[in-house]
């Protein structure tokens, strides 16, 4: 007997499948899993009495394929990291916007207050905005307040991300903090993708430009990408950063795999890993 999505063919007799989308989708799935489905031929479906003609065949096939694909889409979406990735990307975008707006607003402020010079103050970021707000008025003031609101928004988002990452990435969050863990997942394109990654790839995630420059022109390879944001990496002496980043990535990739497969916190592992990373940062 030969099975097709539209029916079962046995020699010359044919049993058409019921005209029910759920059944048809299941047939497609089963045939696909069996891995040896014959290519469907539309005239067989007509012979079967499943449809009347080619147009009817395509119409029914189309509905079945759409239904099947919607199901696959749901599966793919549910393995996604519960909205973690879009939030990370939003934070990055807000950062960029805040930096640009702050720069512009400072220029504007200088135009009004020629005595003020950026170089004369060591204040940066949000503190700079606070400083400017003290004697800004009118439209400039409202722009500064807008920047301030964006910064608040960012703070709320990062808190949300950290909370969410603590749940879906408990071990990696314990090692590097929720935001960095979420950034890595976003950079890799998902937790599954991150868990499949070799430690050496994870180590340079987020340093795309430097990595491809290295491959293309032979410039020195990047030591770290997103993992640089971990205190132990950017806090250690420059000549030791590469080593810390390497050890950290090694431990981190194990942590992500525990997150992805076991889905629970492993305190013993975290203790050992933290100790190994601390050692890597101290002089031998």
């Amino acid at each position: 007997m030969q099975s097709y999505w539209f029916g079962d063919l046995d020699g010359t007799s044919c049993q058409p499948a019921p005209d029910d989308l759920a059944v048809l989708v299941k047939r497609v799935r089963d045939l696909g899993d069996a891995r040896e489905a014959p290519l469907p031929e539309w005239d067989l479906a007509v012979m079967c009495g499943f449809v009347n003609n080619r147009a009817g065949y395509l119409e029914c096939l189309r509905r079945t394929a759409i239904s099947y694909s919607r199901e696959m889409l749901l599966v793919a979406m549910s393995t996604d990291t519960s909205g973690l990735l879009p939030m990370v990307r939003m934070v990055d975008q807000i950062d960029e916007a805040v930096n640009l707006l702050t720069e512009r607003a400072t220029e504007w402020y200088i135009a009004i207050h020629p005595g003020f010079h950026r170089k004369s103050t060591r204040v940066r970021g949000t503190a700079l905005i606070d400083l400017l707000r003290k004697d800004a008025v009118g439209p400039l003031l409202s722009v500064l307040e807008e920047i301030d609101r964006l910064t608040d928004q960012r703070r709320m988002l990062t808190r949300e991300i950290a909370g969410c990452a603590d749940k879906v990435l408990p071990n990696s969050s314990a090692l590097v903090g929720g935001l960095v863990a979420a950034r890595l997942a976003a950079e890799a394109g998902g937790i599954r993708e991150l868990a499949m990654m070799p430690a050496s790839s994870l180590q340079v995630l987020g340093s795309r430009k430097a990595l491809f420059a290295h491959l293309a022109t032979g410039s020195p390879p990047p030591k770290h990408g997103v993992v640089f944001q971990h205190g132990k990496v950017h806090g250690s002496r420059k000549e030791r950063r590469g080593r810390v980043a390497r050890v950290l990535s090694g431990k981190l990739v194990i942590a992500v795999r525990i997150d992805y497969y076991r889905k629970e916190l492993d305190p013993g592992f975290i203790r050992n890993a933290t100790e190994a990373i601390r050692k890597a940062g101290s002089a031998q």
């Binding site: 696909g32 290519l39 694909s69």
Partner: peptide, 19 residues
């Protein structure tokens, strides 16, 4: 006919796609 599948796994959409 839209098919959500990985092109590396043609056996998954063999049941749907004719010659």
């Amino acid at each position: 006919i839209p098919i959500m599948a990985d092109a590396r796994k043609p056996y998954l959409y063999r049941p749907l796609v004719e010659e």
